[in-house]
Design a binder for these strands. Structure first.
Lengths: 161, 161
DNA sequence: GAGAAAGTAGAAAATAATGTCAACATTAAA
DNA sequence: TTTAATGTTGACATTATTTTCTACTTTCTC
């Protein structure tokens, strides 16, 4: 289980924008701050723009800017924009071995498990906003942990078997 | 966020063994049932054996067999055996762009978030055993859902911001 | 308008993940 | 004790992902 570089870098770029919320940033500037090439950042921003999370300003003095305040953008939105994460037909298509369709296509316990687990993970991420990622590591850790151990009945909680 | 083929296929092979718990299965047999090549299954089984989750029987009438009953093997164990999932130094190493180390190495809110989210996800998976994946899709779905909505206070639950 | 400073898009190169192959090691059975 | 059926290993081929490159479009400033 891992996140792709597109997801990681994309999220980082968007967090940079969140740091400068209200102002636009040029691709070059983001690239500098994240240690990425300008061309690469440009490519990363593309899906985020198509998803409507950021707006581009073209021409001289152009750049990117968040379309909403950081408090109003969830991590699930960002990750989905960057990479339609498939545990659905797409998933089964890419895990079919040498057959034309997965041998478990009609009935698959593992699919049921992945489906629920990832669904709940994204559900959890949908409660974390960009605003909550601003601040230093300790502060963010504290905040997220708050979430995880908070009272409400519980998307991704599991009791022992 | 996605799972690799190694993880998916590895889990499937191990579930096949769970179906035949107590008896050994030959690589060829597993390959047939999963629609994979014999050579590929052989490769997949290797890390599972090294992790001690399965034992190999060499020579004529050889095969693989679970070293513990399906109820005693968790998904986290299987996934870790297949792929050391890194959100640690390894993760930061592979997400450092063009720099020698990630520009956020010393302090990274995103790292804190990934760390906690994946930790909790694996925590959740550590409560699901191979035994719980046996049965048809509907049954498994029901079982896992039970877990998610059960009473106890809650690794991966999140409350709205 | 002209020119320069942006973003855009798609091709190409580099890298990593996936899957196959062939030579080898082990062991049950004849 | 040979033989054939198996797992083991590492090198190779293939495919997918990541990253760069190049040509193009838009728009601000003069």
């Amino acid at each position: 289980m891992k996140i792709s570089r597109l997801e990681e870098y994309g999220l980082r770029c968007v967090v940079q924008l969140a740091h400068h919320a209200g102002q636009s940033m040029q691709v070059e500037e983001i690239a500098q701050l994240e240690g990425l090439s300008k061309a690469y950042v440009a490519k990363i921003m593309s899906p985020l723009r198509r998803a409507g999370l950021v707006a581009s300003i073209r021409g001289v003095r152009g750049g990117y800017i968040l379309t909403r305040p950081p408090e109003a953008i969830t991590l699930t939105e960002v990750l989905f924009a960057l990479e339609a994460t498939e545990v659905d037909d797409g998933f089964c298509q890419t895990h079919r071995g040498k057959c034309s369709c997965c041998v478990h296509m009609s009935d698959c316990g593992i699919r049921a498990m992945w489906l629920l687990v990832t669904e709940q993970a994204y559900q959890a991420l949908s409660h974390i906003t960009l605003a909550q990622l601003l601040g230093n590591e300790a502060v963010v850790a504290e905040r997220i942990q708050q979430h995880f151990f908070s009272s409400r009945a519980s998307p991704l909680s599991l009791t022992p078997a």
